[in-house]
Design a protein around this nucleic acid. Structure first.
Length: 803
RNA sequence: GCCGGAAUGGCGAAAUUGGCAGACGCACGGGACUUAAAAUCCCGGGAACUUAACCGUUCGUGCCGGUUCAAGUCCGGCUUCCGGCACCA
């Protein structure tokens, strides 16, 4: 018989949400647990079946923790500033605020229909001025501590629409909207000095429990390298400073390369005999993305600066200088010494432009290919370094550079400072005033929030400035320092700002005076378990670690790291194994699934679909199995054998094993096998032709974290005391988890020949003796000498025979 | 291109981390119930060969090679797919 999930689920959700049953207690004496899921960007498309994967998983954890006696803080909010809402607003002429309100309402309704145990009294929205006031406050602190500064960077500029474009809006080098050509344009922007925290962001990965793949990604992204900065003289006076990880190869540096955007080039142009050619090259490289520029398979291009030569300080020889876009201005010093014999890109470039390739480490065939794996070689063609190995040569050359005063050891990071400005309307206004006399002046903290002005048109300007720049009455203000007329900063913050600290706000969401009270932060932090997508590993996760460390440094938060443990869920793909997207037409709307099968089935299916950490294609067909399972669970009520307050003999071991397996599986994210265990247990119960009330209660307690509505409903129909979710999490008895006998395989030379049933704790002797009694085994063993006997307890026996 | 993952029956997947490959579920086939169908319940399915059946045997975890008594799992070399690459979030 099918149960009426519609009525049941509505009834329990109404009860949970009106009573806010899952509200966290502000009682710091209770043991706490803080699970966190990445809050969504409320897009116009509504909830996607991918979103709930994370929410349901940690809902299971949150519910289990409550049953284990913890005070649990599990919250939801909206990461609502950002580009899609703004673009939708512009296109449809609706204010982003209204668009957002509508989207949030839709998302909230959808999320609530899943029966998640969020504490809705703590809901937050990054676009709420009560929230972004503190985002602005954090920016002011960063500014005051010298970590926010104005710097030159490039932006994507559509030459036709005359607007700044996000990377996503650039398709094949053209504007997504008008298909006009897009170029890189220099612009002064607000930057955050995340690089100042690079070493700590790296080191403190040892303090946290993240999956190795996440740590590795962050380590590679931060990209620490040890090398040297070396000054090269030039024939026109200016020095060029290079960064290299291989100072030991300096004798092989046969030319130099400068990034096309490097400032010195503009100064040098008048001295270049081929200035026109150089200018054209610079213009051309402005149309390429960094990705294209550093692509190893693309042919390298470059232009020699005619009339200017560099001087290799080791050899004192003049070497040519090129500009080439395979060198990026954002990494190192934007200048390299090229050692074609031992670097792949330099080698290719040297071949193309007929530059000398001088091997300086023995062992390669550098006229045929670059020789980069140089660890075992010795230095050659390198003056006083000759005969040394790579490590010795590195040390010797650095000492020499130091003595000569032309270079030193240098640690470099791939990590770049965070470009924090957006020329957009729908973001937090940056709380800075530009004063002619005082420069960049921070707003007084008492003047926060600096509200986004309500305006009619938030379209981008054709000057490249933010839409806010058009609102004179907002821009013009008084300098907070000297009182003279001044102008506000018109750039807004990126969406990353609000999401870098939202988990702090959940701790004390209605605090009017500070981010959250010290007491609450001390109690709730760190986040015990943070689950989110792999795609956030190097941006959001790193950005929020950076902000947290800064807040720790200024005494706002009590922990060095924000998240104790991080896990990542795999993406839910379309049935065709591709990413779900509107354009592919493979998007599944969770509403339809819930309408047809119910929230409990949806929850089970999302967890049963496959390994939580791996991507999984959505397959609507197999949802039925989860629905059938729940129908059978509901019908357990028809086979209750008796009232009892203990396990029956028949089911005792089955239940104990299931409790153990499910308890462990939840902790290790193996929700799929936890549910499979429940399914098997249900099968055992039916094969046993019934269960007692004690067993039913235990079953419902296990079930209620996965499928809470049906579990509570059965609990209440049976008139069991209180609620299923208010019970303590079932305990298991280790002794009762073991079967008395096991079936093990008997192999000869690794091939299975028989199976035997033996006591689980048999010794090797006992097991082997038992195996040798089997006729087929006996026969084969008689044909040859036994070389080796292997017994793996509970698993198998293997006889290895002589040939 | 660089960095990080993934690949197992018709399908989604399991496999105590080196120990019986395919748990659990979908789909499918057979049976029960039914006047019948649906639903439900029970049983059966990796492939090939062999056999009238049972029994044998061989092959099987993307591809090629290696280590080991034993490899989905470890090592070396590939292929394909997915995510990220700093202004999508």
């Amino acid at each position: 018989m099918e149960y009426n999930f519609k009525a049941i689920e509505k009834k329990w959700q109404d009860f949970w949400y009106t009573s806010n049953l899952f509200a966290a207690q502000n009682n710091t004496k209770l043991p706490k647990y803080y699970p966190l899921v990445e809050f969504p960007y409320p897009s116009g498309a509504g909830l996607h079946v991918g979103h709930p994967r994370s929410y349901i998983a940690l809902d299971i954890v949150a519910r289990k923790r409550r049953m284990q006696g913890f005070n649990v803080l599990y919250c939801m909010g909206w990461d609502a500033f950002g580009l899609p809402t703004e673009n939708y607003a512009i296109k449809n002429k609706i204010h982003p605020k209204l668009v957002n309100k509508r989207n949030v309402a839709h998302f909230k309704e959808q999320i609530k229909s899943l029966g998640l145990s969020f504490d809705w009294s703590r809901e937050i929205d990054t676009t709420d001025e009560k929230y972004y006031r503190f985002t602005q406050w954090i920016f002011l602190q960063l500014f005051k501590h010298g970590l926010a500064y104005k710097g030159e960077t490039t932006v994507n500029w559509c030459t036709k629409c005359k607007v700044v474009l996000a990377n996503e809006e650039v398709v094949n080098g053209c504007c997504e909207r008008c298909s006009g050509p897009v170029v890189k344009k220099n612009k002064s922007q607000w930057m955050l000095k995340i690089t100042e925290y690079a070493q700590r962001l790296l080191d403190d990965l040892e303090l946290v429990d993240y999956p190795q793949k996440v740590k590795t990604s962050q380590i590679n992204w931060i990209g620490r390298s040890e090398g040297a900065e070396i000054k090269f003289k030039t024939t026109i006076g200016d020095e060029l400073e290079v960064y290299t990880t291989r100072p030991d190869t300096i004798f092989g540096a046969t030319y130099m390369v400068i990034a096309p955007e490097h400032k010195l080039i503009q100064k040098w142009l008048p001295h270049c005999k081929n200035a026109q050619q150089v200018k054209e090259y610079i213009k051309e490289s402005a149309t390429k993305s960094d990705l294209e520029r550093t692509d190893l398979v693309k042919e390298k291009t470059g232009v020699k600066l005619e009339g200017i030569m560099g001087i290799n300080p080791a050899t004192n020889q003049e070497i040519p200088i090129f500009i080439a876009d395979y060198v990026l201005v954002s990494y190192g010093t934007g200048v390299i010494m090229a050692v074609p014999a031992h670097d792949e890109r330099d080698w290719e470039f040297a071949k193309k432009y007929n530059l000398p390739i001088i091997p300086v480490i023995s062992g390669g065939q550098t006229n045929q290919e670059p020789y980069t794996a140089t660890n075992s070689g010795q230095l050659i063609n390198s003056g006083f370094l000759n005969g040394k190995n790579v490590a010795e040569a590195k040390e010797a050359i650095i000492n020499w550079l130091k003595e000569e005063g032309i270079g030193n050891k240098k640690v470099n990071f791939k990590l770049r400072d965070w470009i924090f400005s957006r020329q957009r309307y729908w973001g937090e206004p940056i709380p800075i005033v530009h004063c002619k006399d005082c420069g960049c002046v921070p707003l007084n903290e008492t003047d926060l929030p600096l509200r986004l002005p309500e305006i009619e048109s938030y379209e981008q300007t054709d000057t490249g400035e933010s839409p806010l720049s058009k609102i004179e009455e907002w821009v013009n203000c008084k300098c907070p320092k000297c009182g003279k007329p001044a102008q506000r900063e018109t750039d807004t913050m990126p969406q990353w700002a609000g999401s870098s600290w939202y988990f702090l706000r959940y701790c004390d969401p209605h605090n009017q005076n500070e981010i959250a009270s010290k007491e609450m932060l001390k109690y709730w932090l760190p986040v015990d378990w943070y689950n989110g997508g792999m795609e956030h590993t190097t941006l959001h996760l790193l950005y929020s670690r950076f902000w947290h460390k800064f807040l720790y440094d200024i005494g706002v938060v009590p922990t060095v790291e924000p998240y104790k443990k991080r896990t990542s869920h795999g993406m839910i793909l379309g049935a065709n194994n591709e990413k779900m997207s509107k354009s592919r037409g493979n998007v599944i709307n969770p509403d339809e699934v819930i309408a047809q099968y119910g929230a409990d089935t949806m929850r089970l299916y999302e967890m049963f679909i496959g390994d939580f950490e791996t991507a999984a294609p959505w397959n609507t067909d197999s949802i039925k199995g989860c629905k059938r399972f729940l129908d059978r669970v509901f019908n357990l009520q028809d086979i209750i054998t008796q009232k009892a307050d203990n396990f029956s003999k028949e089911l005792e071991v089955k239940f104990n094993k299931a409790i153990k397996k499910i308890s462990q599986d939840i902790e290790t994210l193996k929700f799929n096998t936890a549910i499979a265990t429940l399914m098997s247990l249900l099968g055992d119960i039916y094969r046993n032709k019934g269960l007692n009330t004690f067993e039913l209660k235990i079953f419902l307690q296990l079930l209620c974290v996965f499928a809470p509505h049906i579990a509570e409903e059965i609990w209440s129909i049976q008139k069991f005391e209180s609620l299923a979710c208010k019970q303590t999490w079932p305990q298991f008895n280790e002794d009762l988890c073991k079967e008395e006998t096991v079936e093990i395989a008997v192999q000869i030379n690794g091939k299975i020949k028989a199976r035997i049933e033996i006591p689980a704790d048999s010794t090797q002797e006992e097991a082997l003796a038992e195996a040798k009694k089997i006729d087929t085994v006996k026969q084969i063993l008689n044909t040859a000498q036994i070389k080796k006997e292997i017994y793996v307890k509970g698993r198998l026996i293997n006889f290895v025979l002589e040939n």
